[in-house]
Amino acid sequence: MENRDPLFEVSREIVGADFQSAGDISGEVKKILLQAGFPPPFIRRIVIAAYEAEMNVVIHAFKGIFTTVIYPDKVHIVIDDEGPGIPDLELAFQEGYSTAPPHVRELGFGAGYGLSNMRKCSDTLKIDSHVGEGTRVTMDFLVKSQRDGAEVEK
């Protein structure tokens, strides 16, 4: 029986509307995975999904906690935010649908591909959202997966 205990865990705080630091956490996750020696295509899809999730909190929420747990066979990411929540999840998954305000879109974010890209890149994606309270996004990335090399839209 293989040991399923986590090998590594790190939690970071995300501050809403802080575009200066946006992407720092995904960058750190990338660095950890690179130094751990995971295969590049595996790292790539994690980083894309992590960045989308991180940006969602920066754009929409007040604050959030980004937790990365590395297991021998998978990477588990949980992003918990205090924010407006997602009223219609099905709609939010539609490519091109966005509720990002104009000033955010001007920065090149919020094109409406966030959730669908996260779904394409992860092996499991779970979204728990309560309007007016916040959203919890849980993603798993399996080391042995067919998803490496997933192409994303922007």
Partner: peptide, 18 residues
């Protein structure tokens, strides 16, 4: 791709080193 960044050939050990 050259994996010069990785800290160890075994990723358990690499993460410990991290």
């Amino acid at each position: 791709a050259r994996d010069v960044l990785k800290l160890d050939t075994d990723y358990r050990k690499a993460l410990e080193k991290y």
